[in-house]
Amino acid sequence: MADEDYHEIFENFERKNGFSAVPEVVSDVLFTLDSDRASLGEIAEIIKRDPGLSANIMKYANSGAYLLSKSLSSVDQAIRVIGMKPLKGLCLAIPVFERYGHVAGVRETWLHSRATSMACSILAKAIKFPEPDVAETAGLLHDIGKLVLAVATAKFFQSQIMIADSRDRDADWRQEKRLLGFNHCFIGAWFARKFNLPQILIEGILWHHEFEKSSYGRDLACLTFIGDQMAVAVGKEHPDFVFVEPGIVRALNHLRIDDRLLREVLTECLGRVARMAA
């Protein structure tokens, strides 16, 4: 892997103010969430200091990601529904995806990430994965590296969008590795590390296409990959690669997901995605 190449991408992302897209208030939220004493009320008060972030968190909570009997009307309610653990990933993802929504492919990556997050959450509960909240967050952040590529290597990313449905190509992550020397999983893990996300989450992002390589969080990486592929199957595909990968068969075997369970999870996922607001 060519160190200087990916450093250039990180620098380019920073030059385009990529990190200033994360509002100041987020670092306070992250710091408070990392302390053992954090309460939901305290977190809500911090988030309310930023009206933009507050509005976006409420929008997200009301957008079909959660099963609600009625619309949520306050930040406090939204945070209670989302829960502590997914909040950290959400506070990082929402501002950057919002800021770069105008860049080609970013809006689709956001829709795909939200669908993946839903699929991971449904799947995690179905197989009794010990940390469904972490699975939900991994789904939300798994393609954050694509956002960095879309912003910092716009020409490259657009060239991949143009061949998204070509059958004479490699999968996105293999293609990136071949042409750039690294892929969006690596970039995503770097992003997660920079914001001090838990190691298991970093592994989930890093190995979501190659779960067998993960030594620390193989099941999470595998679950994230299945969620990713389910999002593609139900029509929320990547902007730069529209196909379901054959590796899903190995992943389903690894987590011992049988046909009956897959049908159930997929049907619930289809219903949730159909209700998902743009």
Binding site: D165, R167, A171, V232, A233, G235, E237, V242, F243, V244, E245, P246, I248, V249, L252, D259
Partner: peptide, 17 residues
């Protein structure tokens, strides 16, 4: 949907999936 599944091969497990 058929287009999205075009990368799944012709092996038994892939066809069943």
């Amino acid at each position: 949907l058929l287009r999205r599944l075009a990368f799944l091969g012709d092996g038994h497990a892939e066809k069943a999936l």
